[in-house]
Simulated assay, not measured.
Amino acid sequence: MPSSSARTEPPTGRTLSFITISPAFDPQGQPRKPGALCIGAQKAGTSWLAQMLGQHPQVWIPPFKEVQFFNHRFIPGHRKWIGWHYRNKPDEIRTRHRTRNLPMPPELDAYLDGLTRGQMFHNHWYKRVFAPAPAHAMPMDFTPEYSALPDEGVDFVAEFLPKARVIYLIRHPVDRAISQLRMNLQREKRRPRTLADWMAEIGNPVLHDRGDYASYLPRWQARFPDMLVLPFGRIARDPQAVMDAVEAHLGIGPHPYANMRDKVFANRDPLTVPPQAIAALETHMAPQLAFLADRFGADFLAETR
């Protein structure tokens, strides 16, 4: 196992456009529960963290990253698009292999087919998701939507995974909402034309729901008091410190990560949100900012952006 002194600073300036999943794959592995969860927040660096931990031999991440199990059970409004997720992600993985002229491993193909046929989202199905994890590796579920689980959902997670190590990345509420808005508009191929259009967009409850830290953090910390909470801005300023904290929390050894300063899914043509819309978001998010400052301090809040 390499020592921390053996680490080297990776090159900068590149954009990673896909997730590097854990390369190890045990087709004879038995169904098992994950040992760790990354529960969010959406647009707060979870893909970057998956990119890093996907390189670590002691961590195993499913090839589609987000399992969407607990929210499927406890947030009925998510079920329609979760169905889309599982219809499309296996095809994306197969297409990725074809475009890179890589043979599709038959065991991976069989695994994807098996998970998306028949009854899904029951407890044993969830454990089957992590079956290919090597015996020496900790399976990990990265699903940002878990942060929004209701009380009974978090109770279920705590009962089902009582020893899980939980990570929550926190991004500045306004920045997070703007990033989500841009992503949603680009996915839907829409561009607001007028200020009134923009004001209508920022009033969408979905933008505020994913960043409701004042509701979600106490809920999760009550069941997982040792949950690791990290500010998003630290990823850019000191990615090594982030990974040191994550390794310590997960109980895994140090690893020389590649491309720590690269961006994942960087937006090359971001939409410009009018300042009036940003000001309205700042007003709406003021209680969230006050909550974060009160709970973690001003220095932590400053590091969320």
Score class of each variant (00 low, 15 high):
residue 1 M to T: 01
residue 1 M to S: 13
residue 2 P to C: 10
residue 12 T to G: 06
residue 12 T to I: 00
residue 13 G to I: 09
residue 13 G to D: 15
residue 15 T to I: 14
residue 19 I to Q: 13
residue 20 T to R: 14
residue 22 S to T: 05
residue 25 F to D: 04
residue 28 Q to L: 05
residue 29 G to K: 00
residue 29 G to Q: 00
residue 35 G to P: 03
residue 35 G to N: 09
residue 43 K to Y: 05
residue 45 G to L: 03
residue 46 T to H: 05
residue 46 T to P: 03
residue 47 S to A: 14
residue 47 S to L: 11
residue 48 W to L: 10
residue 48 W to H: 07
residue 48 W to E: 08
residue 50 A to T: 06
residue 51 Q to P: 05
residue 53 L to I: 02
residue 54 G to E: 03
residue 56 H to R: 06
residue 58 Q to A: 15
residue 59 V to K: 02
residue 59 V to A: 07
residue 60 W to I: 01
residue 63 P to Y: 13
residue 64 F to K: 02
residue 66 E to I: 02
residue 68 Q to W: 04
residue 69 F to G: 02
residue 72 H to V: 01
residue 76 P to N: 06
residue 77 G to T: 02
residue 77 G to L: 01
residue 78 H to P: 02
residue 80 K to N: 05
residue 80 K to V: 07
residue 81 W to K: 07
residue 82 I to C: 04
residue 85 H to N: 12
residue 86 Y to A: 02
residue 88 N to G: 06
residue 88 N to P: 00
residue 89 K to S: 13
residue 89 K to E: 14
residue 90 P to R: 03
residue 95 T to Y: 11
residue 99 T to E: 15
residue 101 N to P: 02
residue 104 M to F: 10
residue 105 P to G: 12
residue 106 P to G: 07
residue 108 L to P: 06
residue 111 Y to D: 07
residue 118 G to V: 00
residue 122 H to I: 03
residue 125 W to C: 02
residue 126 Y to D: 03
residue 128 R to E: 12
residue 130 F to A: 01
residue 133 A to S: 09
residue 134 P to L: 10
residue 138 M to S: 08
residue 140 M to D: 06
residue 140 M to Q: 06
residue 142 F to D: 01
residue 142 F to S: 01
residue 147 S to G: 06
residue 155 D to E: 14
residue 159 E to W: 09
residue 160 F to A: 15
residue 162 P to E: 12
residue 165 R to E: 08
residue 168 Y to N: 09
residue 169 L to G: 11
residue 171 R to C: 10
residue 172 H to P: 00
residue 174 V to T: 14
residue 175 D to Y: 10
residue 182 R to E: 13
residue 182 R to V: 06
residue 183 M to I: 00
residue 184 N to V: 09
residue 186 Q to Y: 13
residue 188 E to G: 03
residue 189 K to N: 05
residue 193 R to Y: 04
residue 193 R to T: 10
residue 195 L to Q: 03
residue 204 N to V: 01
residue 206 V to L: 04
residue 211 G to V: 00
residue 213 Y to A: 05
residue 214 A to V: 04
residue 216 Y to T: 04
residue 218 P to L: 08
residue 225 P to Y: 08
residue 226 D to V: 04
residue 230 L to S: 03
residue 237 R to M: 09
residue 238 D to K: 04
residue 242 V to Q: 13
residue 242 V to F: 11
residue 244 D to P: 04
residue 246 V to T: 07
residue 247 E to T: 06
residue 248 A to G: 15
residue 249 H to D: 12
residue 249 H to W: 07
residue 250 L to E: 09
residue 253 G to F: 10
residue 256 P to I: 01
residue 258 A to H: 08
residue 260 M to H: 02
residue 262 D to C: 11
residue 263 K to A: 10
residue 269 D to T: 12
residue 269 D to H: 15
residue 271 L to A: 15
residue 272 T to V: 15
residue 273 V to G: 10
residue 273 V to I: 14
residue 274 P to V: 08
residue 274 P to H: 08
residue 277 A to D: 02
residue 279 A to H: 06
residue 280 A to F: 05
residue 288 Q to V: 01
residue 292 L to E: 09
residue 294 D to E: 14
residue 294 D to Q: 12
residue 296 F to A: 07
residue 297 G to M: 09
residue 299 D to K: 11
residue 302 A to D: 10
residue 303 E to G: 13
residue 303 E to H: 13
residue 304 T to E: 13
residue 305 R to W: 03
residue 305 R to E: 11
